[in-house]
Structure formats: C-alpha cells, structure tokens
Design a protein around this nucleic acid. Structure first.
Lengths: 224, 224
DNA sequence: CTCCAAAGAGCGAACGTTCATTCGCTATTT
DNA sequence: AAATAGCGAATGAACGTTCGCTCTTTGGAG
C-alpha cells in the first residue's frame, strides 16, 4: 500500500551503482514472502495458515508468489531452516568465552532474552511439533543441533583439559541435558511470565556449576 | 470386520450383572474415538489430521462419530485435556516424598521414563504449539500447570521450614524453572536418543541439589 | 412374557466451503 | 525479442459437517 511508488526511482536517483540487480530484487521479494509467511504461521500454524493469507500479508498474488516458491512446503522448510539457524547461532556465541561456566550461563541468558524480545516461542513450538512428523523439518533440526553439539563437545573437552569440568562427567549426557533444558527455555518465555531475569540467572548459574562438577557417582564413591 | 459377532453375547453369557449399560457403551465408544484421534493427531497434527482419517481409524462413519463429539475442535480439546491431566498427575507423584531432593529427582526420572514409554513427545509438542494460538488449549495448559504449581509451592514451602531449601531462594522462580526444564524433558525423548538413564539421574540430582541451595547471590561478589 | 413406540446408534452419500496450485495473460526489465 | 515478474480467476481435490435413512436397544403396557 505504501510501496507502490514508481519502481524506477532507484534507477533515476541513484544511477546504476545503487540499482538493484535482478538477483537482489529477487532476494528482497523472497525475504518479503518469508516475513509474511512467518507472521501467518505464528498466528495460525503451518497447516492452519493458507497460501491466500500469506499472499495477502505479502501483498502479492498467488501467481506471483509461486514464482519464488514451488509449494507451501518449500516455504515451511525455508522458515524452519532460517529459524533453527538463527537460534543455533545465538546459542553458539558462548564458544568465544574461555570460562565454560560463564559461557554457558551468559549464552543461556542471552537466549532467554532472545526468545522474549523476538517472541520466538510460538514458532519454535510449531517447528518442533512439525519436526516430529515431517522428515524434512526433522533433518533440519538435527542438522543444526548436531552442528552446535559438535562444537559444544570440543568446548567442553577443552574445559576438561583445563580442569573446569570434573573429568568423570559423561560429555554426551551433559550435552544432551544442556540442549534439552535450552529447549525448555525456548518453549517457555519466562521473562514474559514475569520471572525476574536476575533470579533466573542465579539458578541457571547454580545449575551449570553443579552439572559441570556433579557429586561423585553414588556407586563406590569416596570423594569429598 | 471382526467384531460383527452378535451383540447379545454379553447378555447371554454373563447375565444382567456384566451387561453394559447404555452409558457404559457410550463411554467405551468415546474412548475408542479418542484413541483413534490421538493416533491420527500424532501422525499428522491437529490441523493435518482429517475427520475421515479419524473415522477410519476408529472404524466408524462420520455420522456415527458426530453423535459423540459436536466438532473436531471438541475432540482436540478432549485429547489435550486428557493428556495434560495425565502428564501433571505423573509429575504430582513427588508430593508424597518427604525429601524434596529425592521427590523432585524421582518424579523427574519417572516423567522421563513416562515420556519414553508412552512416546508422549509428539503429542506434547502438538498441544504446546496449539496452546500458543488457541485460547481453549492455552487455558487447559495453564489450568493444569497452576494446579501442579500451587501444590508444588506448598511442598517447597514445607521444605524451607524443614531447612532443606535455602530460605533466600525465590520460590516462584524456582518453580518456573523446574516446570520449564520439565517441558524440555517432555519435548526431548532422551532415552530414545540413547542417553543412559543413570547418567541423566546423576546430572538431574546435581542440578536439583544446586538449585535448592544455590550459591550466595552474586551481588558484591568477589569471584576470581 | 410379548409387543410397540420412542430413542439411540450407525451409516455413507452429499453439501458447501476452502484449500494449494495452475494457467493464460499483460507489463516490465534485460 | 526473450526472459522475468505479476496478476487473479479457475480448477480439482479435500475438508468438516449434515442429513435422511436403517437397524438395534430400551422400557413400559398389555
């Protein structure tokens, strides 16, 4: 409605340097479609949202939209792919922090804030539900999960070498637990529920410290 | 196809004592519909599953099915209601355990096993995704959550009185964290991923102990 | 006990709607 | 001239739901 201004404006005003190439225009339109689709999917779910709703939100006709995506499923895949990647990148910020405890705590808190600020919970829930029955989405989730997991494993292994983690802790279990708990935070927008951020951090930190150095295993232990 | 045997069998064989009353027959049919619907919803999602699929799975016609539920939404509500209640009841088993640490750990482990044995993750994900946009389902989730939360709060308050929890811990935050982590376990069937149960328990216990007695608050801290 | 009217249970074709997708066309860009 | 972008009515399939019908069960009257 407000971008029906003449298309040649760019060309006239800025000359060929700033003119958008065909490919750039295409990318822009694709982004427009994905933004619209995301909005519709959050409101109605993957199956509940219709292509007509998405077209209306993107302000284009079905015929035009289908020049960019061959099917609804392709849009869903693209949305899931983008969302999972973004999520995992947020989480991966921790690997720059030399202290594992600080790294995990800070990136967990950053993630909690991220979920709140961008209201990621609904789409996350949708993607995760879809991943339970759609092979394509499942593969996307696993791919990004594994990407983070492998880097996480090296990160933790380094920490063991540095003595920050009890050497007898089972790395793959620890990793699975961290990711599981992270998904709990993705699903529950705690900040929106009014839980104070600093209180969350106290407990997250206590939790992380304890899990990195758990009490000696109950069998034949004599630590302390 | 295989239950076209005479309906009067019960009456003839067992006499009036074991004969099913109209109401009992009705309940049985309703359960049959709900079982079929659950199976379809797991396979295709709430919106993806069709009434015809559900009818086929329940081996009855649409006309018959609609004598028991006025709409698809009513079936979804009933499924969500049942599932959430069952989930929360499993979780509530802990309140019988006088030791909070043991209670929380054991019921968490029981919950993890429950999720695995009955393969609850897909339906949980579906319900949770739907709860983000469907007011009815949202209310159902909140209702059961609050039911557990209020009993949990008393449970924890008693533990504070008994000295098992640091008195300065923020109860509502602790509660929110426990439930959030629990949802992480509901979404990720760790046992199906091959994570060893005893390793999970070690970390869960470490986590619970630490959260109930977190380190002193970081304010004016002198961390190395 | 028999009989019968009423109610309950079941059926499956049919209804109207909505869905994802296609197609023939025009306008713009290269 | 060829390729790309955009349109929106049209299409056929699938959806949730309804309806008219038959069969069975029920409970009271005779």
């Amino acid at each position: 409605m407000d971008d029906l201004v003449p298309l040649r404006e760019d060309l006239v005003d800025l000359g060929e340097a700033a003119a958008l190439s065909r490919a750039e225009r295409r990318d822009q339109t694709i982004r427009r479609i994905l933004d619209a689709a995301r909005k519709c999917f959050v409101a109605s779910g993957f199956q509940g949202a219709s292509m007509h709703q998405i077209c209306a939100e993107a302000e284009m006709s079905p015929g035009a939209l289908y020049r960019y995506f061959p099917s609804k499923e392709a849009i869903i895949n693209a949305i899931a792919e983008n969302d999972r990647r973004e999520d995992m990148e947020t989480f991966a910020a921790m690997f720059d922090n030399p202290s594992v405890v600080d790294g995990v705590v800070e990136s967990t808190m950053a993630y909690i804030r991220h979920v709140h600020e961008r209201d990621m919970a609904p789409l996350f829930a949708e993607i995760r539900a879809e991943s339970m029955r759609n092979h394509m989405i499942c593969a996307t989730c696993l791919e990004h999960r594994d990407g983070v997991a492998s880097r996480f494993e090296t990160y933790l292994a380094d920490a063991i070498a540095a003595g920050e983690i009890a050497p007898d802790v089972d790395l793959s279990t620890l990793l699975a637990m961290f990711m599981t708990i992270g998904e709990g935070f993705a699903l529950n927008n705690l900040l929106a529920l009014g839980v104070p951020e600093n209180q969350i951090e106290i407990l997250v930190r206590a939790m992380v410290v304890a899990m990195l150095k758990p009490a000696a295993p109950p069998a034949t232990s004599s630590v302390s």
